[in-house]
Simulated scan of single mutants.
Amino acid sequence: MSLSAALSLRREAEALAAPLPPLLVAAEHLAAAVQIGGHGRRRAGAGDEFWQFRAAAAGDTARSIDWRRSARSDAQYVREREWQAAQSVHLWVDGAASMQFSGAPSRVPKAAQAQLLALALAVLMVRAGERVGLLAPPLPPRPGRAQLLQLAALLAAPGAVAGDYGAPGATGIAAHARAVFLSDFLGDTGPVEAALAAAAGRGVRGVLMQVLDPDEEAFPYDGRVIFESMGGTLRHETRQAGDLRARYLERLAARRALLGGLARAAGWQFGTSHTGQPAALALLWLYAALERGR
């Protein structure tokens, strides 16, 4: 390899690696700020660590009885061990144009918030011994810090999904795994419903997290305003924006009710967050919701 080629390769590598440390460091700091305690995976099953004694029941074999514990009482007891099988968690972070919206220079775009939450959640999952991956671009679930580096690289890579709004899919989600979809969910809800139905059919549980900008929740506009989608495909001009506020808020509430209903029907959790809130609050809820969905 020539010197010029080597230098060019180094510049490309440095450019590729540049976004990794800030995103991963921010995600790890966010994960560290969330005091989870026990990670919620303690339950009976195959494993090496003692979990609890329970009274023997019909169907328990004589081999499963802990005779030393049983000798101290008139009942027979079974020694249960902690469930230790690692679970697969699939993440989908909407990269469509609408996710680049920010209503104020002091706030990050929705995409940045969603990427940070996804990677911080992955940090918590990996610490708990789980396998984490991405649905798009596809990255099979794996454990370990090396996987976190790949996740950070893919999440920080430039290039939005074509179109104003993104749509999740269930292709690639392992049966009985868990999944998290992070999006503003402002586009067509048909693909969301289809993805949830397909996931539920394979025993997949998960979480829908709607990420919005505070302006999208409060609609603080008045007077003459030109509304244009981030992709430039939609445009609406009005001289009385304030007159639209009530109808907008009604439609937003109806959209959230619909998403919540779709999630419940599939056995999933639905939550909302906006970029004006501390990300730690959203991460804490997201982690707890994912555990409740087991």
Rank of each mutant, 00 (worst) to 15 (best):
E12M: 03
A13T: 11
L16Q: 12
L20Q: 00
L24Y: 03
L24R: 05
A58P: 10
A62H: 11
R63L: 10
R69W: 07
A71F: 06
A71M: 09
R72C: 03
D74A: 15
R79G: 07
R81T: 09
Q84T: 14
A85L: 13
A86K: 03
S88F: 03
V89D: 01
W92V: 01
W92Y: 13
A97M: 00
M99T: 08
G103L: 06
R107N: 06
R127K: 13
L135H: 04
P140I: 09
P141N: 04
G144M: 12
L148Q: 04
L151P: 07
A153M: 09
V161M: 01
V161C: 00
D164G: 10
Y165D: 08
G169C: 04
G172M: 08
G172F: 06
F185N: 07
G187Q: 08
G190T: 15
L196N: 06
A199D: 10
A199I: 08
L208P: 05
L212R: 12
E216Q: 11
F219G: 01
T233E: 13
Q240V: 12
D243L: 14
R247A: 15
Y248S: 04
A266S: 13
G267R: 10
G267A: 10
F270E: 03
P278I: 10
A280F: 08
L281V: 12
A282K: 05
L286N: 09
L286W: 11
A289T: 01
R294L: 05
R294D: 09
